[in-house]
Nucleic acid binder design. Structure first.
Lengths: 311, 311
DNA sequence: GTTTGTTACGGCTACCGTAAAGATC
DNA sequence: GATCTTTACGGTAGCCGTAACAAAC
């Protein structure tokens, strides 16, 4: 049994049971893959793939188990390399952060820029996506950590670390009646106007829904956006009032708009960092996490990673 | 990076940093091992072992991490093979049970013999040892499951499954004064006589101590044994009275000795099965566990194995 | 007909084992 | 001097890639 044989297996499965594409993805030849898979199947005495004549059409029952374990082995092998890199040069490497628009645009810039100054040798990159997508990036290894408010706790393979709590604001155009009420605004007041807010899967939208439901109000949501900038644009156009994360409002930049604190109307949301349970994190990754959420010291995170008891 | 390179690493570490012994254990040549380790170190860019001139004397800091991960990888590779075997032939394979004297002699025989009838193709073997030893057997892969009353919960890498509860009996020779009291015997009565019981680490001995301590009694323990047969022998010789697991007394076989139920004196003990969290268990292993503890169905055990969320 | 997977074959890498030399205790 | 490890070297297995063939959509 060889590591590449496992790599071949996994890649074929990943490419939708297409050996040719797997070969391309791995920069090698189809026959090589076919042969090695055959050899492995012979060695194990079990077919992994079901072939219809010459075409791979499905995975056998044992194949599913085998693929699962193979993935784990390959992941650990990657960790091994990462450990080595860490010791060779603590200051160099790469860090891929998967996150949502709101985090990328409003929460992360400060942390990112000081991180880049501190670790100029680390190739930092950001992958933007929906909460579900970014979790999947972390799962399949194409990102190291996920940062989002929604979704992370839904993946048991990920550890979810609380970063910070935040509240919401109502944003309105100039001269809007709600500005008279200011802090005395109620949910009912809000529900009286057309509302523009986040898409269902994003930025704690579920908490907004819950708040209205609790008071049996049915708000008139006229537009759901993935990012705050879209919301602001349409609030500016007078389409309705916006409910956004407070941190996304900037008095200077957002001329013509006004924010009304709404922390008394909606329960606060918490932004989380998600990491694979079985990931090996580089030293600078711990440093990044601590930069973003100062209470998440290295030891705290390590302890969380090992919650299931094993060392 | 190759799997055998990892195997070499781990074996060298296991053999006390002796490359020659590792070579012997793996049925290969020393130079081969040396070279492959070098190659791996080159590839990773980190030394795993510290060499004093030509002698391997220690493991580097990264080496420790690397060894840990390597062990995990090799373990998973073994699991992979096991999965395959399972599907090739569900009825053949091996099962190694690590257990203590008391379990082997009094609790297991029934389960074992019906298991052997049901799975004649499975090579069953039993490794006897102290509670700590048997857990270590399971940890290092030389046994599949551990069965014991003590010790299993102290290893976080093992899942501990409750099997059954049992109580204790006092055994005395014929005409012993305690026989007058029978079920009305108290701890104070017991403490009045010299006592023979289990060694500290065995068979729930700690519960016995705790019971006496709770009543501020200091029993006169004149002999501590690892197994019940030794205890019985010396009780028969009149050295003192015995405190043993009730299941270890047999009216017919143990002529000349009498048992007094002591379930009201000591809290019951529970016997556990211990399994590595990351082990792949063969179908017949589940079957064995269920034979030993009928409430531990396959699904129950599988659920317990995946408590840390993954899978 | 096009896409896809297997068989056949040749080159070459690199792994393994033997033998000998160098270090350490 | 004995044990242990590395270097040197030759044989060989087996991996990879090209090319041709076979099957499936």
């Amino acid at each position: 049994m060889k590591l590449q044989q496992l790599r071949y297996l996994v890649e074929v499965a990943k490419q939708g049971l297409n050996v040719s594409e797997a070969a391309e993805a791995l920069h090698t030849s189809q026959p090589g893959i076919s042969k090695q898979i055959r050899l492995l199947e012979d060695e194990l005495g079990v077919q992994v793939f079901i072939r219809n004549g010459k075409r791979v059409v499905d995975v056998t029952a044992p194949g599913k188990e085998i693929l699962r374990i193979s993935e784990r082995i390959l992941r650990e092998a990657k960790n091994l390399k990462r450990v080595a890199e860490e010791f060779v040069n603590e200051e160099e490497g790469s860090l891929v952060i998967a996150t949502t628009h709101t985090q990328a645009r409003y929460a992360l810039p400060g942390t990112i820029s000081s991180f880049m100054q501190r670790y100029p040798g680390v190739k930092l990159s950001i992958k933007q996506g929906s909460p579900t997508q970014i979790c999947e990036f972390v799962l399949d290894g194409s990102a190291d950590i996920a940062i989002a408010t929604e979704g992370i706790d839904q993946f048991p393979e990920l550890i979810s670390l609380d970063c910070y709590q935040w509240n919401r604001s109502i944003i309105v155009p100039d001269n809007h009646p709600l500005l008279e009420l200011r802090r005395h605004v109620t949910l009912a007041d809000v529900a009286a106007y057309p509302i523009i807010t986040y898409d269902f899967a994003f930025a704690g939208r579920s908490k907004i829904n819950r708040a209205f439901e609790a008071e049996h109000l049915s708000p008139n949501v006229v537009l759901t956006a993935i990012d705050t900038d879209v919301i602001k644009t349409y609030v500016g156009l007078g389409l309705g009032i916006g409910i956004i994360a407070s941190m996304a409002f900037d008095v200077h930049r957002d001329q013509g708009l006004f924010a009304i604190d709404a922390s008394h109307l909606f329960e606060p949301s918490t932004t989380h960092i998600g990491v694979r349970r079985d990931a090996y994190l580089r030293g600078y990754t711990f440093s990044f996490i601590e930069g973003f959420a100062p209470h998440l010291k290295r030891e705290t995170v390590e302890r969380a990673l090992n919650t299931y008891g094993e060392d």
